[in-house]
Write a protein that binds this DNA or RNA. Structure first.
Lengths: 228, 228
DNA sequence: ATAACGAAAGGACATATGTCCCAAAGAATC
DNA sequence: GATTCTTTGGGACATATGTCCTTTCGTTAT
């Protein structure tokens, strides 16, 4: 008998037929708290994850140790799909930004029951193709716009709802130093831009973090948010 | 009866079983000359192309009119795969860099005979996933390295064989002005960097274009070539 | 050949960003 | 509470890159 919660999620996103009846008995549900790592670059990965609730942050690390934010993801999204197809270790690190719920399917069962299933393959194709498209835009965005715009964009992404308009300092990945790495610039420069933002009344420094004061203004500065 | 040339190509890349026997009668062969456009951003596209010979350049154009090089591609590669899956107009412009041969399958037949074929879908998945991976690296590369490195990389890519070590000026897309757009910088800056390259004896200016003098040196400067 | 023109290279300066370091503000230790 | 240590913001300067304009040079028209 399959878990009722699972059925609810499958129906919610209308993916009962994608994860076919053979696969469903092997799907488990996992929860992660804000700040927890769901998978870590370079480590082996054994499961295909389906993000059904919450928000995650995807980032990568270069040889020199610089980190670079790649995207924020919300449902419906797959994690570990690229690794599944390429049969490699985890390419990027994925961290929960809020409380997160994932459906979790071990690769062997994905392979066994999915590899020959056109519906499932088409689903993978759709998702990965969309990822490719988003990354194309991201590439363009990053090469075309200055840090100012990217930072505004980032601030909006992490202050994901009204009650979280504070970029907290105690998060491993939310300290300003990490923020800098994440948007591909230096800590110094982030400070500089934040100073400008403060002068313009867009944000405000507070002990423990940054408070977004003028959401509209930030939005305007980052016309289209790349990280979403 | 299927064209012998087609059979040769299918066997060369061992893709007879991917483009199954139902699809094969509808595959045609197309040739493009250096400089010709294979597809153009924003226009409708009707065919899935398989690059089996030659080299193409993929680039995109932003709203402001800036062009940005995305990649160079050599066989075996697909064109129009993303558009096929997303069912959209052409996303990027593709231009032949050398004499190019493509296999060409109309979308309706791809859809009819491919959408239910796990082998074909797996092939698409592999290719698109690889594209995604390459683009991920490209993003990282572009954000991490200065124009100098990208230009070196570009020069190596366009001087694709010994006899073409000259970046010709008469190519629509090879003038220095276009080169600048393609690597995401200004014409002025390309000139500046080229000046440095000249001083270092890496390249030499000649009426009509740039000659690569020290291929090794350029290679060293662009550790790993993103455009290949 | 000369004048007019347009493309290509480069000078001068502005802006964006990186690096290094220091000072102020907390936090920890004694 | 004084001292030390660590974190954080910011100053000063270097480098990368963009913008604008001038100079140079080859081409075309006369």
């Amino acid at each position: 008998m399959i878990n009722q919660e699972l059925i609810t999620y499958l129906q919610m996103y209308n993916i009962q037929h994608i994860f076919n009846s053979h696969m469903q008995p092997y799907i488990s549900i996992q929860h992660f708290n804000e700040g927890e790592l769901i998978c870590k670059q370079g480590e082996a990965i054994q499961h295909l994850y389906v993000l059904v609730k919450g928000k995650v942050k995807v980032y990568t690390m270069s040889e020199e140790g610089k980190t670079l934010i790649l995207s924020f993801k919300t449902p419906l999204e797959l994690l570990g799909d690229i690794e599944f197809v390429r049969d490699t270790d985890t390419v990027n690190t994925v961290e929960a930004v809020s409380s997160v719920t994932l459906l979790c399917v071990p690769y062997p069962y994905v392979r066994k029951y999915g590899s020959e299933d056109p519906l499932f393959l088409q689903f993978l194709l759709k998702i990965i193709t969309e990822k490719f498209y988003v990354k194309s835009n991201s590439l363009r965005f990053n090469l075309l716009y200055p840090v100012e715009v990217r930072l505004a964009s980032y601030l909006l992404s992490v202050s994901f709802d009204e009650s979280h308009a504070l970029v907290k300092g105690h998060h491993s990945a939310n300290s300003l130093r990490d923020t800098a790495n994440l948007i591909g610039t230096s800590y110094r420069h982030v400070n500089r831009i934040l100073q400008h933002f403060c002068e313009q009344g867009l944000v405000e420094r507070q002990p423990g973090g940054i408070v977004v004061r003028d959401r509209e203004g930030l939005q305007k500065m980052s016309n289209n948010n790349i990280y979403e």
